[in-house]
Each structure stands twice: as C-alpha cells, then as structure tokens.
Design a protein around this nucleic acid. Structure first.
Length: 425
RNA sequence: GUGAGCGUAGCUCAGCUGGUGGUAGCACCGGGUUGUGGCCUCGGCGGUCGUGGGUUCAAGUCCCAUCGCUCACCCCA
C-alpha cells in the first residue's frame, strides 16, 4: 500500500456511514420543521472572504487555511467554515428583501490545516444554519432550542453554555477593563496569557491553566459590562430559554475563535470526547453582512461537527448501527435458471425490492451463505426443478421456513408474484 | 508549530532479560450435506516484523535516523 490518504483526511467506511446517514437525516428533518431551507455553496472561495469575516489575527486565518494560488494568479482558499460563504451567497444573489428573514442551512466539508487529534481533522464536516434578517432574541432562542432538539432526537448528551459578547457599543469598555485587570497581574500569568493580554485580551478567559484561572476569578465580567440594549437582549434570551424548558448555563468566560460574533454566543459541550468538547457552537453576528458589503442585516448561526456527533453516537454502541439489509437474495442453479434469474433480478429491483444475486458460480450452499452475509430477509431459490414446475422456493431467512410459490406461464409476471408474496410476509 | 506514546497477517493483538515469526482471535476460502445460510467442527490462504543504517556469532526485540499513526498542547466543530 504505497499511496495513503493525506494526514487528517479520512475515509468514512460503509459501517460508519450508517451513523452519518442517521444523524444527517434526523438533523435535516428538524431543520425543515423549523422552517430552514438548504443552500449549497462552493468549497473554494477567494481568500479575502475568509480574512475579512473570520478576522485577520485569528488562528484560523493566520495558520490554518488551505490557501493557494489559482492558475490565474489569484489567491483562493478551501473554506475553513461555512458562514462566510453563505453570507457571500446571500449578498451576491440578493436573498435579502426588506423585512424578510431567511433561514438557511448547509451541510458539507470544511478544511483547516491543524495537527490532527481525537475529534479534530483537516477535512471535517459541519451542518450549519444561518438566520439572516432578525434582531429578535427569540430567534437566538429558537436556534439554540433547535440545536438542543437535534441532540435530543439523535440521543446524545451535552450541555448548553451561553454568553453574550456585547456589541461595538459595549465591548471596547470591557476590553479596556480587561486589559487594566491583566496589567496589574501580568507577572503571575502563564506565557500564553501574557501574549494574549495584548493580542486578544478576551481570550485569556479561556486559559486552561489552573493558576491563571485562579487569577481570573476576580476578573471583570463581560456580562456586567453589557450596554442596555445588549443586556435586555441577553435577559430575553435567558427568559425564553427558560420558557421553553431548554437547560443551559451562563458561562461568562466563554470566548469564540471567530472575530465576527456579537451578543449571544453558545456552545454544546460534552466531556466524552477527549480534549475536543465542543460538538456544536455558534452565535450572533450582527455586523457581518454589512461588513461584507451587504445591507445592514443582523444574523445568527451555528455549526455542529459531524465527526464529533458520529463519534459520540458510535460510543453508545446500543445496536443502532444495523447494517443495510437486502430484502431478497436470488439463488439460482443451472444455466437456464441463472439466465432467467438475471432478468428476474432487474424486474424485482424495478418493483422496489433490494435484491442481489451471485455471479461467481457459487454452489447453492455458498449462495445461501452470501444471502446470510448480506442480511437478506428472504431467499428465492430458482433451480431446474422450479423452472420445470413453474414455481420458486421462497425461504424466510429469519425463521428458516420455506414455501413453494406457484408462478404462471407468463415469465413477465413472475417478479410481481414474488414481490407480492414477500410483501405479504 | 511544540511534546509524548506507538508501528508484527485485511483487522485486533501475543512475542518475557536479543537465540528458528503465533495450532492466537476476527475476517476470507474450502470440506463435514449429489439442492439450503446462521451455530458447531476440520482444513486452507495469509507476514519485506513501517523504512534505512548501526551494535552483535545472532535483532521483531538494543541504538540512531527517517516516515507514518495516535494522543496532548495551541486552537477549534
């Protein structure tokens, strides 16, 4: 085996795909129930799109993007996240209409050149939603309630943590307060926090060092620095979450990695995934559309990591991962039966049955084994005797019971007769 | 980018202080039934011990390098 997949790029094999399909189907269904429509956007975009939305000094832009020069010399990037592309499409296609609210979702791969580890890949997949055009705190709540419902219906445990990052009105004051606070104890902080205190003072709150966290107990709280409007917004979000019975915890120290967030931010967190606890995250980004050259349209969205959901679901291993099943395996004996069987096979498929047969010239016994391996519900045995008598032997593979099914002289009717018989069982 | 651990059959792994690669499990193929699966049983296929160099009479085992994987840091879905 000489050529292998790239580091951080994974094949998803059939057994695991079953989990993916279950999650995707469940999630799509919920998206639709909440009035979301699917949008498909390109995987490649101009580099500038991500630089301008995600933020120049974020880790994603600084060192994680798959960026290269296109044949015409322009810089293009494989998307590291979905929101930027969706907003671009929203503006470019004029999806905004005065007073309208768009609910969009998209599912697909994202790319970040990071060092892979448990729950972190270079190509990973997200299901993400965006609501564009509403300032209402109820939208924030709806989006979080939807995320919560998805986990419920998939059958996963996680906790919802929320915070408010304020707006351009109130954040500068908090940033200043934070810097002042850090200045006073800069010598007691870890190297990372010393660096962050100038580059991105809010980030220190995320530090995992116990020593630093001990310092931050008395740090200024963003929530206490919110302006009146942001405060009222956050209060309404909390109240309406309570109203819907969605459990959450306020985490005033939660910071997000993308620069565009304003007001409400949230994360769905699990402790069962090693170091990668976030299985979904999002927030409000009220200035983003305007910043990209669109109208003054507020937005909110979130993304869930497919691989992390799949991993969690896989860990539960409660028999959900049943293999795909064949309705019928067609067993033939002899040349003539094989020829007739091949035509019958196609006719049965046209009638909607999942049917397979053997082309390797295996013995009856071996064909039965194949049927078993494929998890076939039934086998139909078509041999010389059956052909002569115009009948087939239908065997229920679970009970082992078998019966003769009488056919007619008209070959074209056989498939329908067999299909009917199977559906009666 | 930094650190640690691990690379033996398609997969999961034994292999002690160096002394001929395991009747190992799963999977796969075939027999035990001249037309019948699962269970059982018997047999078979299957390995450049990641790669290259070194030490040694002798290296899967020790040393060095290299590649790969994994986990963690950073950051994030």
């Amino acid at each position: 085996m000489s050529i292998k997949a790239l580091k951080g790029f994974k094949d998803i094999l059939p057994d695991e795909v079953i989990l993916w399909q279950f999650i995707e189907k469940t999630t799509r269904d919920i998206f639709h129930r909440y009035g979301f429509e699917e949008i498909k956007v390109p995987i490649l975009e101009k580099t500038d799109l991500f630089v301008r939305t995600i933020g120049e000094s974020t880790d994603i832009v600084e060192k994680e993007m798959y960026t290269f020069v296109d044949r015409n010399g322009s810089s293009i990037t494989m998307r590291p996240e979905g929101t930027a592309s969706v907003i671009r499409a929203y503006i470019e296609n004029g999806l905004y209409v005065r007073g309208s609210v768009q609910r969009l979702y998209t599912i697909g791969p994202m790319f970040r050149h990071e060092r892979p580890q448990k729950g972190r890949l270079r190509q990973f997949h997200q299901m993400s939603v965006e609501v564009l055009g509403s300032n209402s705190a109820r939208i924030d709540t709806e989006v979080m309630a939807m995320a919560w419902q998805i986990l419920q219906e998939i059958g996963l445990q996680a906790s919802l943590e929320i915070n408010s990052l304020g707006c351009p009105e109130c954040r500068p004051a908090f940033k200043e307060a934070m810097q002042g606070f850090l200045q006073g104890r800069i010598g007691h902080l870890c190297d990372d926090c010393q660096r962050r205190s100038t580059t991105n003072p809010l980030r220190v709150l995320d530090c995992k060092s116990e020593h630093c966290q001990a310092q931050y107990v008395t740090a200024p709280s963003i929530i206490e620095h919110l302006c009146g409007a942001c405060r009222r917004h956050f209060e309404e979000v909390k109240q309406t979450l309570d109203l819907l019975g969605v459990p959450y915890a306020v985490n005033a120290k939660m910071v997000r990695g993308l620069d565009y967030y304003t007001r409400t931010t949230f994360e769905l967190i699990t402790t069962e995934l090693g170091a990668q606890g976030a299985i979904g995250a999002g927030g409000r980004y009220d200035g983003l559309v305007r910043q990209l050259g669109g109208p003054e349209v507020p937005g909110i969205g979130f993304a869930m990591g497919m691989e992390r959901l799949v991993m969690l679901l896989g860990q539960k291993k409660d028999g959900l991962a049943t293999r795909s099943v064949l309705d019928l395996f067609l067993v033939t004996l002899g040349e003539e039966a094989y020829a007739k069987g091949f035509v019958l096979l196609q006719m049965l498929r046209s009638l909607g049955l999942r049917v397979m047969m053997d082309h390797e010239g295996r013995s009856l016994k071996n064909q039965m084994k194949q049927a078993d391996k494929q998890n076939a519900g039934f086998t139909v045995i078509l041999g010389e005797n059956e052909l002569a008598n115009r009948e087939v032997l239908l065997k229920d593979m679970h009970s082992g019971a078998q019966q003769l099914v009488e056919l007619t002289p008209v070959f074209e009717d056989w498939a329908a007769l067999i299909a009917t018989k199977i559906r009666q069982q």
